[in-house]
């Protein structure tokens, strides 16, 4: 026995590190057997198969069911609202409960988007969404995984997300506001000296007489005190909060000032940054 093994044999691991996640996590479930999911999933075919394809994060399963439905003459809007979105609602329910994880959500989002594109082909135009949101990564910053998550959460939540990409010059953001008149914007940054793009964008918008109900700013180096030092902005804590913030603007007509005050209630959970 070498030294480290001898030392290890003297240890009671419980006094050193406890894997709480193992203790908390319940038994394995089949997603469609969860009661909340059962309440959401449509009973009728082919909507059920479409929703199940999304729930399983299976692009082929979802897409084939969508194609079959459309060939049988179903309205593309029904396919979207009663099939694809129901599947996504079920995924969101499981994610919120902690039974589903990010990869499940991303794969389901991919399946939903493929089904949506197919439906829009038949529809001949973009389907109606709850509203348009513009998302960008600050100028000079190449880090975009956070923005990509935000975009996926927004789309899964029924919003049209205009993805401007990363290292986006401020003028492009302003142009996008003029073009899309978004109900909400999201900006992300990893570096201390690229997040300074946010107040500049707000300033330029004000100079141009433009207003967006709220701009959610987040990312690695971004802090609440910095974000709240300029107007129109809200500090976004988690990517999955984004559609809830957007919902509050659409449904409850919340302003950026109100979102700052009521952030925790709006996202429906304890958020240390806001309490």
């Amino acid at each position: 026995m070498n030294n480290i093994e001898e030392l290890e044999s003297k240890m009671d691991q419980d006094f050193v590190a406890v894997r709480y996640n193992v203790e908390l996590e319940g038994p394995a479930i089949t997603p469609e057997k969860d009661p909340d999911v059962q309440a959401i999933l449509p009973k009728e075919e082919p909507y059920r198969s479409i929703a199940m394809g999304v729930l399983h994060g299976d692009i082929d399963e979802a897409l084939n069911s969508v194609k079959e439905g459309l060939e049988d003459g179903l309205s593309p809007m029904d396919v979207i609202n009663d099939g694809l979105m129901k599947g996504m609602d079920a995924v969101n329910a499981l994610y919120t409960k902690g039974f589903f994880f990010l990869p499940d959500l991303m794969l389901s989002g991919d399946a939903m988007m493929e089904g949506l594109k197919e439906s829009e082909k038949v529809l001949g135009h973009k389907s109606e969404t709850k509203g348009t949101v513009v998302s960008f990564v600050a100028e000079g910053d190449p880090h975009d995984i956070g923005k990509n998550l935000v975009v996926m959460f927004l789309r899964a939540g029924g919003f049209e997300a205009i993805d401007l990409g990363r290292d986006v010059p401020n003028e492009e953001v302003i142009d996008a506001v003029k073009e899309y008149k978004p109900i909400f914007m999201t900006g992300t940054a990893l570096m201390t000296t690229t997040m300074t793009a946010f107040p500049k964008i707000v300033e330029e918008m004000q100079e141009n007489g433009l207003e967006v109900p709220a701009i959610g700013c987040g990312g690695g180096s971004v802090r609440r005190d910095f974000v709240e030092s300029f107007p129109m902005s809200v500090y976004g804590v988690e990517a999955y909060h984004t559609p809830k913030l957007a919902d509050s603007i659409i449904k409850d007509k919340k302003t950026w000032k109100e979102i700052r005050k009521e952030y925790s209630e709006i996202v429906g959970e304890f958020v240390p940054e806001y309490d």
């Binding site: 030294n3 480290i4 030392l7 290890e8 240890m11 691991q13 050193v16 590190a17 894997r19």
Partner: peptide
């Protein structure tokens, strides 16, 4: 140094 190295190691080895 080997003792300290092993203590550092054992505090976290099975944490994750």
């Amino acid at each position: 140094e080997e003792v300290l190295r092993d203590l550092y190691t054992l505090t976290d080895k099975y944490r994750d």
